[in-house]
């Protein structure tokens, strides 16, 4: 398909290094498709990454996330800061296809070499989404983008996981969507470093902002805890920060369509960026990211091995047994693991 030099790891990495956008786009595809070049590419690029500040933007459908990303990226560009954008939308569970329309709202960024926008479908793979997203972030980071914005629909655990790969997570709210604060229902309140109440010219914007304010005063569970609630690898403790120096998520009102309130939001993001560095939280989050990442990769790799050893047939039999309630899932896993160990020990 693509030019021959983009079919090798060396060619692609050289292309990326020389700033070739086709090479960058191809690398992302290899990673998304988990092609045989994916792992060598990631290995080659990993040392180059680590410079970018990663910003997660999440919120319910209809809150105006894409328009906000458009405005935010536009403002970064005015400051001559390059921006990579990943817009994640769900894959249809019925067809496996996806309709990715976020670019429509980012038309102001067209024609700017300092911007790279990539639409990603969730592709519905177990846990693989967050991993693929983290990998694509890494590629954009390695390509030298200074800010990487990742936009996800804020509904459900997988989005929380993606958002957790960001250093600064902005949760977007908008008035008039039924609930005063959508983030509560979606369970993403806790991951917010910053809140943006978008469409602030609409009725109810003040109420939404006030409701958020109140929740913060009530003391939403902090981010450290929520990030622990999965089964994680052992992690180091968060840095000890004096209570008066703890980060309290600020609330910004924006009207993204009119580019209002964006300066303040950007300043808030950069404040948080500085806070992360000065408080030592960044290192801790980097450690957490690495832990999460490692856990996901390990889980996938182990799963892959188990599947390989036992074969699909054996697995589907077990699945059938669980489905018919002849077996509970915990015993099922125990049996599978026993079978696996037996297999490798006798091999």
């Amino acid at each position: 398909m693509a030019p021959a030099q983009y079919n090798t790891v060396a060619g692609l990495v050289a292309g990326l290094e020389s700033g070739n956008r086709r090479a960058l786009a191809r690398i992302i595809s290899h990673i998304e498709n988990n092609s045989e070049l994916a792992q060598p590419l990631l290995a080659a690029l990993y040392p180059r990454a680590g410079q970018a500040h990663i910003i997660g933007i999440t919120g319910a459908p209809g809150t105006g996330k894409s328009t906000l990303v458009n405005a935010l990226a536009g403002l970064y560009r005015q400051q001559d800061i390059s921006v990579g954008i990943i817009a994640v939308d769900p894959t249809s569970p019925f067809s496996g296809g996806a309709l990715l329309g976020d670019r429509v709202r980012m038309r102001d960024l067209a024609g700017d070499a300092g911007v790279f926008i990539r639409s990603m479908a969730t592709r519905g793979s177990l846990g693989g989404l967050a991993q693929a997203t983290a990998d694509v972030i890494m590629v954009l980071d390695a390509a030298g983008f200074q800010r990487i914005i990742i936009e996800t629909v804020g509904v459900g655990q997988s989005e929380v996981e993606i958002a957790s790969t960001a250093y600064t997570t902005v949760v977007v709210e908008a008035p008039g969507l039924g609930d005063e604060v959508q983030a509560i229902k979606a369970g993403v309140l806790e991951i917010a470093d910053i809140f943006a109440v978008n469409k602030a010219d609409r009725e109810g914007a003040d109420r939404t902002a006030m409701a958020l304010q109140m929740m913060l005063h009530l003391g939403a569970p902090d981010r450290q805890q929520t990030m622990h609630h999965g089964r994680m690898l052992p992690v180091s403790l968060p840095p000890d920060i004096a209570p008066d120096r703890q980060w309290t998520p600020p609330i910004f009102k924006t009207i993204a369509t009119q580019k209002q309130g964006i300066e303040a939001l950007l300043a808030g993001i950069e404040d948080h960026n500085r806070y992360l560095a000065e408080s030592g939280t960044r290192q801790w989050r980097q450690y957490l990211r690495a832990a999460t990442e490692l856990r996901m990769i390990l889980r996938d790799a182990l799963l892959e091995r188990v599947l390989q050893q036992l074969g699909e047939e054996a697995i589907s039999e077990t699945v059938q047994a669980v489905a018919q309630r002849r077996l509970d899932p915990y015993s099922a896993v125990r049996q599978l693991l026993e079978a696996y160990h037996h297999r490798i020990n006798t091999a």
Partner: peptide, 26 residues
């Protein structure tokens, strides 16, 4: 989409340059 493709929709009023750029990035 229903046929299983990933479809990137750019909407109306696109210039040829915008279309080519989107095709490349995506």
């Amino acid at each position: 989409r229903d046929a299983g493709f990933e479809v990137i929709y750019t909407g109306i009023r696109q210039t040829p340059a915008m279309i080519a750029e989107a095709a490349l990035q995506e």
